[in-house]
């Protein structure tokens, strides 16, 4: 299957089980959302897929376009076309946004080739305009001294430039005011295509009004306990999560 497929996934941090037999299929071209109360393993799931060394995959499979990525390194998984937008994007002092994204693109080139700088800047500026990021941000250090909204836009800018096959967006709406939410959502929507799959992790239906998902899943106790269409998000917002227990 093209897209992301997770089979019987069990993830542990040290000896604590955070994901406990999770199954999920997100075909290319679709956007799914994972909702659920705090502390149910949503962020753990995203980090485990990305290959974070602290999140040990005890059993199960994660297939990206049919290829099992379990056991591969973080950067290998990234170069295969997996992107994670972080709930808390990390500062990289002294490394400008322009240089950082370019280095990431160069890392995907074969045989020591590098991206054409003219074409690169042209595209970078286009995507920055789309996300309403000021041009002078190209010279600013990645995320350093950014507001919450600026960090999220910077992450989505990276996604648009790196063009992943599959993206997990972990609480991309947190810390955004309504205008920023609209801009970030526009950016995310511009990356939607029949080739690209996405998984949104969120607490709020609000985000899903801007980025319309095809399916909603509820994560609780480290596994998917309920799945449904977009209407499920509205129901969850009204009723909360307690009725699921």
């Amino acid at each position: 299957m093209k897209g992301l497929e997770i089979r019987n996934l069990v993830v542990k941090i040290a000896s604590r089980t955070v994901i406990d037999g999770l199954n999920l299929e997100v075909p290319a071209g679709q956007v799914h959302a994972i909702m659920g109360p705090n502390g149910t393993g949503k962020s753990s799931l995203s980090k485990a897929i990305a290959g974070h060394p602290d999140y040990k995959i005890a059993s199960g499979e994660v297939l990206l376009d049919g290829e099992n990525i379990v056991g591969k390194s973080v950067d290998e998984i990234a170069r295969m076309g997996f992107f994670l937008s972080f709930q808390y994007p990390v500062d990289v002092p002294g490394v400008s946004i322009a240089n950082f994204i370019r280095a990431c693109l160069n890392a995907r080139q074969s045989g020591g080739k590098t991206v054409n700088p003219v074409a690169y800047y042209k595209e970078l500026y286009e995507k920055m305009d789309l996300l309403k990021i000021d041009r002078n941000f190209t010279n600013r250090s990645v995320n350093e001294g950014f507001s919450g909204g600026e960090k999220k836009r910077c992450d989505i800018l990276q996604m648009l430039m790196l063009k992943p096959k599959f993206a997990v967006l972990d609480e991309v709406d947190s810390g955004l005011d309504i205008d920023a939410l609209r801009i970030v959502s526009q950016g995310v929507n511009s990356a939607r295509s029949p080739e690209v799959g996405m998984l949104l992790i969120t607490h709020y239906n609000r985000l899903l009004e801007y980025i319309k998902p095809d399916r909603i899943h509820v994560l609780s106790g480290g596994k998917i306990v309920l799945s449904g269409g977009p209407e499920l998000a509205v129901e969850l917002e009204q009723k909360g999560y307690d009725w699921l227990k």
Partner: peptide
């Protein structure tokens, strides 16, 4: 920070260097 940079496709060494 290194995890973040590697998630963008840089090898561990490239990330540490940068």
């Amino acid at each position: 920070q290194i995890f973040y940079m590697r998630q963008r496709g840089l090898s561990e060494q490239e990330a540490v260097s940068l």
